[in-house]
């Protein structure tokens, strides 16, 4: 097995086990979309657009009592080491589904009956944890679109490399490590909305990984909130009128 943590306890990219990769979130990057965002998390570069609520086509997909959330996670052909053909793969289709199910609990879809809300995620460059970065960015884009939300959704993975529990795995750690466990949470309501696990963790390791991932999500939530605050309020004082 490849050694992913050195004797000083540092990972291959120099991070400590509980350290996040550099994170950048921008709001409102696409003019045509109703809401949009851009995220960089490590080498991940993802742009997200929200269109809706809008009339549903085909019409039979519409629900009488709520909006239909649709997500499309797609990787650009140049986003990976070897070119990825543009048509969606089985992996992209599964990820689209789990992203939708991670976001849906946070949205008050009953406010928009007979409509659809489309969330398009385009991965411009992929690194480990692109679904987590995608979920984090999607929640920001949905807030930018002004869709009613019970809470934000924020995601981060924990996992195990070289026998140690680490957070926010990069590409190499994801591929060579022993376990990868992406989760998403609603940070204020304290609910889990995404959970996947790929690899082996002991019950003790699981508990530790879960705890560390939740803490990481809280840090990322602060960045989400700051990005929205900067876009909508700048450095302004609260209005008096």
């Amino acid at each position: 097995m490849k050694e992913l943590i050195d004797e000083k306890g540092l990972r291959i990219d120099g991070r400590r086990v509980d350290e996040l990769r550099p994170l950048k979130i921008e709001v409102g990057v696409l003019k045509n979309a109703d809401g949009s965002s851009y995220i960089e998390m490590g080498k991940n570069k993802i742009v997200v657009a929200v269109y809706g609520p809008k009339e549903v086509h085909p019409k039979h997909q519409a629900l009488p009592d709520r909006s239909v959330l649709r997500c499309r996670y797609h990787m650009a052909p140049f986003s990976t080491d070897t070119r990825k053909p543009p048509q969606p793969s089985r992996r992209e289709i599964e990820i689209s589904k789990v992203i939708r199910e991670a976001l849906e609990p946070a949205l008050i879809l009953e406010e928009y009956p007979r409509t659809a809300i489309d969330v398009y995620l385009e991965v411009l460059q992929a690194d480990g944890g692109s679904r987590c970065a995608g979920i984090t960015a999607s929640a920001v884009a949905l807030a930018d679109a002004g869709i009613s939300m019970r809470d934000m959704v924020v995601a981060c993975a924990a996992g195990k490399t070289s026998g140690q529990v680490v957070i926010d795995l990069n590409d190499v750690e994801d591929k060579e490590g022993e376990a990868d466990m992406p989760i998403a949470i609603m940070p204020n309501l304290n609910q889990l909305t995404l959970f996947q696990l790929d690899g082996i963790l002991t019950p003790e390791e699981f508990e530790k990984a879960f705890e560390m991932a939740i803490n990481a999500c809280r840090t990322i939530y602060d960045a989400q909130r700051k990005a929205l605050m900067d876009k909508y309020f700048g450095k302004a004082e609260v209005g008096e009128e």
Partner: peptide
């Protein structure tokens, strides 16, 4: 050079039109 994983890349804006190109050499 906006996409490090590509051999070449460019993000171009002409007004509000925005495109991104990536080159892969195989």
């Amino acid at each position: 050079g906006v996409i490090e994983k590509a051999n070449g890349s460019a993000r171009v804006q002409v007004g509000n039109t925005q495109v991104i190109a990536g080159v892969k050499i195989e």
